[in-house]
């Protein structure tokens, strides 16, 4: 890449200043060939996504943040601070947005694992520890079984994040839509909580592989998405963090927790 000819450089700067439409020209040049970030048909699984990690400012695309985040996760998913830390010059809101999308994306795979074990019979109610949650995906909150709740919540969050009305652009998020971050995060957290309390093996196997929960926790801490008192999964159990939270909850009193603010939408 060092011997890039000047004309090509000009080409690159041009394409970055423009939109993605001109990039085919740049991408076809010989210098760029190895950097083509695409999975061609016939590629072996081990060879997929073998893209070099490139700095955010060099990603020329309408989905630069998403690509950057996914690239970060692929390269080093254990470096939570780097994952969650706001990239320089970026919007806090859009960064959270991309994180939440990625969270929903990866939660799909947790649901796949849960579906094997968590059924209407095993978990007729959506519980985590001693808390019970009502599903807010319906006109009136319903007492869905756990797997329904999880799927509905995930579908609902996905739909909301994809909603053209609330999130018309991935470049800038309307002020009024920011409030949805917290409700999305809060509900998605319950999926983790249910898995942790009732399907511990699945949770841990999944966590070992994807480190999704710790990343989510870090994110919600960093951007204050979830109130501390709602984080019911014992803190020290998960990662190497010091136990700043008291583990023991006295849940005898609040057997049924109906989130009053969650029911709409």
């Amino acid at each position: 890449m060092a011997n890039v000819i000047p004309s090509n450089e000009a080409n690159n700067t041009f394409s970055s200043s423009e939109s993605s439409t001109s990039s085919p020209i740049a991408s076809t040049s010989a210098e760029h060939k190895p950097a083509l970030r695409r999975n061609r048909p016939g590629t072996k699984l081990e060879d997929t996504y073998q893209f070099p990690h490139i700095p955010l400012d060099q990603i020329d695309s309408a989905f630069a943040l998403q690509e950057y985040l996914q690239s970060l996760i692929r390269t080093d998913k254990e470096n939570l601070d780097a994952l969650v830390e706001l990239p320089p010059g970026q919007d806090k809101e859009t960064w959270q947005y991309e994180h939440l999308r990625q969270l929903c994306l990866e939660l799909n795979y947790l649901v796949v694992q849960l579906e094997a074990e968590c059924t209407r019979q095993t978990c007729p109610e959506m519980k985590a520890d001693e808390w019970q949650y009502l599903c807010a995906a319906h006109p009136a909150p319903m007492n869905c079984c756990a797997i329904d709740y999880i799927v509905h919540t995930l579908d609902g969050a996905t739909t909301l994040l994809n909603s053209h009305k609330y999130f018309p652009s991935r470049i800038s998020i309307p002020e009024t839509s920011l409030k949805h971050y917290q409700s999305i995060a809060r509900r998605l957290y319950r999926i983790f909580a249910h898995a942790w309390f009732h399907h511990r093996e699945i949770f841990e196997a999944f966590e070992n592989e994807n480190m999704l929960y710790v990343r989510f926790l870090k994110l919600s801490e960093r951007y204050e998405l979830i109130a501390k008192n709602l984080l019911i999964i014992p803190y020290n159990n998960i990662s190497d963090n010091e136990n700043d939270d008291q583990v023991i909850h006295n849940n005898d009193s609040s057997e049924i927790f109906t989130p009053p603010t969650d029911d709409s939408e």
Binding site: P41, G42, T43, K44, L45, T48, E115, T119, R120, C135, A137, H138, C144, C145, I147, D148, V151, H152, D155, G156
Partner: peptide, 24 residues
């Protein structure tokens, strides 16, 4: 219904045989 109960019976079966990514 999009938000109806999860119907696991829709998941009929899985064909296992390939050992790498299936592309077409």
């Amino acid at each position: 219904d999009t938000y109806g109960p999860v119907d696991l019976s829709l998941n009929l079966t899985t064909y296992i045989g390939h050992t790498d990514a299936i592309w077409d």
